[in-house]
Simulated scan of single mutants.
Amino acid sequence: MAVECAQDAVPPLNSISPDALRCLIRELDRSGYRFVTTTPASHAHVVARQGRQQAGSLRDIFGWGLPFDRGQLVPELFASLGDARIIVERDRGVFASRVRVSSACDTLFLHSAYPTLAQDAVFLGPDSYRFADLILARMAPLGRGSRILDYAAGAGVGGIAAASAQRQAHLTMADINPDALFLASINAAHAGLDADTVWATSPAGVEGMFDLIVTHPPFMIDPSARAYRDGGDLYGARLSLDWMVAAAAKLVPGGRLILHTGVSIVAGQDVLRPQLEAALAATEYSLWYHELDPDIFGEELATPAYADVERIAAVGACVTRAAR
């Protein structure tokens, strides 16, 4: 069994045996495992509390990411996860999981372990739960043979939420991160869905037209320019704007695009909405736009990049193409 390796020798997530990951998520599901992922700031507070230095449960190991010893997993599971490099030895006799497992939409999702600092981290957090709720509230019924695209799928929460509610439709998940596509495909299969995965740098790069497109772009100003987090210029809203415009062109007549993102509010003004309204003016598309949460990631306002931002709001937008 090969759990005793240096952290920098661990292979990428997409080289892990998918069978081992399927086994892990299946066994956790059978055990009744559930875990809701918090913001990174909340996570840091919880794991820093007294008595949280070592795991005492499966939720501690695969949710909170606490270190554990081999006796805390059944031998067969410990051996399987170790051989697959899903768990690695961080210190002599102390192990940690390289993946996190969270519950959402009545199923379980594999994603990156805390802290999500790597450029290719596969993120799932509170925004993912809002995103799924928005999709279920705003999507229209889909007929047999309809196509759903989850662009920038990450762990696949948005697309899996949509396709689970409309099982007669076919799901395609696209992302620039091979690790995300790898984990999302396992998550979709665990949810009982047959989904395609596509590597793409823009919605325009995904072949075909779609009845429903869902997307949750990165929206933060990130000095490290991490792909899952950095939204570009326009105070982090550039990708939200560009992806909405590109994705709208991929809708069939009557098709719908649903976006969840975060927007900086500067001098009382939403920096994204007027740009999006201008881009869609005098076109065959109609826009619904709503502020879902007026104040998220408030700790970011203490950083230099947000010096003139008064708040960051979570917003939802829905673009519908006119039926012919």
Rank of each mutant, 00 (worst) to 15 (best):
D150E: 04
P217V: 07
G145N: 14
A200E: 00
A84N: 05
Y235P: 00
P218M: 06
R59T: 15
A191F: 09
I25D: 03
G268F: 13
V206N: 02
G63I: 11
A279M: 14
L280F: 08
L28D: 02
F95N: 14
G63P: 07
Q53P: 00
E89H: 07
D91W: 09
A248F: 03
A246M: 00
R90C: 12
A281V: 04
V252W: 09
V315Q: 12
R311I: 09
G158E: 03
G232E: 09
P126S: 10
F182Y: 11
D270P: 10
L13S: 15
L108Q: 08
G255Y: 12
G154F: 08
A307H: 07
A200D: 01
A161K: 05
G254F: 10
A140S: 05
G158L: 04
Y151L: 03
C23A: 10
V315T: 12
Y306Q: 05
S112D: 13
H290V: 08
V88A: 13
I25Y: 06
G156V: 03
A225K: 08
L241M: 11
P178H: 11
Q54P: 00
S57T: 15
D60M: 05
P67F: 02
H290S: 10
P304L: 06
I258V: 08
V101A: 05
G93D: 11
A313K: 09
A9S: 13
A162E: 00
G316N: 07
D69Q: 06
G125R: 02
N187C: 11
G232W: 04
E76T: 08
M1D: 01
E27P: 10
L134Q: 13
P253V: 01
I296W: 07
L212C: 06
F297H: 09
D196Q: 12
S185T: 06
S80K: 10
V88E: 15
S286G: 13
V3H: 14
R321S: 05
D222P: 01
G125T: 02
V94M: 07
V122A: 14
I186W: 03
K250H: 06
D295M: 00
L136G: 12
A282C: 12
